[in-house]
């Protein structure tokens, strides 16, 4: 049975080094190395690696352009970063060795690496970045006045709608973080249960499904960020 949540590997003067932090650093290193590799061998006739990277970036760019239109340069970097980081983290977490290689401690088995997106701290951090960035970008593009007009109006009906929108901004923290956390940790639990029934063949279809979920959850996070950014940076939304 795989362990639940982040475990502290060791603490340095009050700072806990957890296994999800280690996995996050690993994902960062993989992404940076991939970027450097692709950049060094950039050519007009792309090899396999460059073609794969190009197709991912192109797909994200086209989708962003279709939704955001003229605001693509502003929004695309966020979409790309969220998709690449989350999808990469989820996919790397499916590799053998994650959650299985570790130490034996008196309190139980502690894996060395644990999928970072199955840790609520990580997904909450991502959600906070997404929501705060959305609102900062909105204030910068439409100005503080138009931004506040979205939430507060003198008309009682619009005031009610505005309050609901304000509530939605707050629940975004919850939905963003728990969607990712729930999907990935549930997938982990399913894989663990299936492997404990029979360690061969049985988990294979679920592993395939988890690869799909890993990519789709990255895409969902990126697309939702894109949609909210596009919504809030609308130059002048309908007035009464």
């Amino acid at each position: 049975m795989p362990s639940q949540g982040p475990e502290t590997l060791f603490s340095v003067s009050g700072f806990h080094l957890t296994n999800t932090l280690l996995a996050t650093l690993l994902v960062d290193i993989v992404i940076v190395v991939l970027v450097l590799l692709v950049r060094r061998r950039l050519s007009l006739s792309p090899g396999k690696l460059q073609a794969a990277v190009e197709s991912v970036v192109e797909y994200l760019r086209e989708t962003t352009e279709r939704v955001a239109g003229g605001r693509t340069p502003l929004i695309f970097p966020w979409v790309a970063v969220f998709f690449i980081y989350i999808a990469m983290s989820n996919l790397i977490g499916l590799l053998p060795g994650f959650g299985t290689v570790g130490f034996r401690r008196p309190e139980g088995f502690v894996p060395l690496l644990h999928v970072s997106t199955a840790d609520l701290n990580v997904t909450l951090a991502l959600a906070v970045v997404s929501v705060v960035a959305t609102n900062v970008i909105a204030i910068r593009t439409v100005g503080l006045g138009t931004y506040l007009k979205r939430f507060f109006a003198l008309n009682p009906l619009l005031l009610f709608v505005g309050l609901l929108e304000l509530l939605q901004e707050l629940t975004k923290f919850v939905t963003f973080s728990f969607r990712l956390f729930g999907n990935i940790s549930a997938g982990e639990a399913v894989l663990g249960t299936m492997s404990s029934i029979l360690a061969f063949v049985v988990p294979v279809p679920f592993l395939g499904f988890e690869i799909l979920v890993a990519l789709i959850q990255g895409l969902v996070f990126a697309l939702l960020t894109m949609a909210f950014m596009t919504m809030l940076t609308e130059p002048h939304h309908k007035e009464e």
């Binding site: 086209e62 989708t63 279709r66 939704v67 629940t171 919850v174 939905t175 728990f178 969607r179 729930g182 789709i216 895409l219 969902v220 697309l223 939702l224 949609a227």
Partner: peptide
């Protein structure tokens, strides 16, 4: 297809957020 799929995923995410509340 290119227009439908992102919107489909968005709508699914909104429906899913109801399930997330009960998960919490």
């Amino acid at each position: 297809t290119g227009r439908i799929v992102p919107n489909m995923i968005l709508a699914m995410a909104f429906a899913e957020s109801i399930a997330i509340y009960s998960l919490i």
